[in-house]
């Protein structure tokens, strides 16, 4: 049973960005994204500036453009709609590459693709430089409701356990000749999902019993929150990117 280091997005490194406490990176990412979203779509130069900022942070974090761009493909299904806009959009038509396209639609498509890509790239940089565990610690320090961080903590811990159980059940099913090819042959699979749910439920009960046995009284003790929280200096360092982005956004709004 291979229990490998299942980091899908995190890239191990000791870069200055990696060393920043998670909470400042989360805030920086959110503020940056807000600045991008608030920028008027016609301020093309502003999006260039944002792209430069992302590239600078990526270089500092030693995250290569190939890694970043290939993972940014995840946004494709979400921006697919944008491709249709120039054809469907109303208003003035312009001639482009022999096609008569809606000018408004073109701007709309650009707006979605540019802002979406920058947001995805910023999130990817956060994920590449922060472990999932640290993300939860950061959210906790940002006073995110404990119920949410606790659910995320449990998910982080038990996702691998559940995936392992599902894999073993599938292997056992396939070993007995189950080979579903059509929808109506999925009975075994469906029963497996039900069994997995029951197992997860029962495990939940056992975990809770074990927690009770160690004195759990309904509230997680806030143990590590204090240690290693961000200093004022780290907040300032991390603030450079969102402050620059906010400056760009403000200028763009004033100019258009």
């Amino acid at each position: 049973m291979g229990a490998g280091h299942a980091h899908v997005l995190y890239r191990e490194s000791a870069s200055p960005v990696h060393r920043l406490p998670p909470e400042v990176k989360i805030v920086a990412m959110v503020v940056f994204t807000l600045a991008v979203v608030a920028t008027p779509r016609t301020a093309f130069w502003a999006f260039g500036a944002y792209a430069l900022l992302v590239a600078a942070v990526a270089a500092l974090a030693r995250v290569g453009p190939g890694w970043l761009l290939s993972r940014a493909l995840i946004e494709l299904p979400f921006v697919l709609f944008a491709v249709a806009l120039p054809f469907l959009g109303a208003g003035e038509r312009v001639e482009l590459l022999g096609l008569r396209l809606s000018e408004d639609g073109l701007y709309g498509a650009w707006n979605i693709v540019a802002k979406g890509t920058l947001g995805v790239l910023a999130s990817l940089l956060l994920a590449a430089t922060t472990t999932t565990r640290d993300l939860i610690v950061g959210l906790d320090r940002l006073r995110c409701p404990q119920i949410l961080t606790q659910i995320a903590t449990f998910m982080l811990r038990y996702l691998d356990v559940l995936v392992g159980e599902a894999r073993r059940m599938r292997v056992a099913r396939v070993s007995r000749g189950d080979d579903p090819r059509f929808l109506w042959q999925l009975r075994g699979f469906a029963a497996g999902v039900g069994a997995l749910f029951l197992r997860a439920f029962e495990r939940g009960e056992r975990v809770y019993l074990a927690m009770l046995s160690r004195g759990y009284s309904g509230r997680m003790p806030a143990v590590w929150q204090g240690a290693g929280a961000a200093t004022a200096g780290q907040w300032l360092v991390a603030a450079t990117v969102p402050v620059l982005a906010a400056g760009v956004a403000a200028t763009a709004v004033l100019l258009t």
Partner: peptide, 24 residues
């Protein structure tokens, strides 16, 4: 308990060991 996966419910070993004494 019999299954350590039931007992160890936190993302790191140190946090899990700290859970009991922190409850105290």
């Amino acid at each position: 308990f019999q299954d350590p996966d039931d007992q160890l419910f936190l993302p790191t070993v140190a946090e899990d060991v700290a859970f009991g004494p922190a409850n105290l």
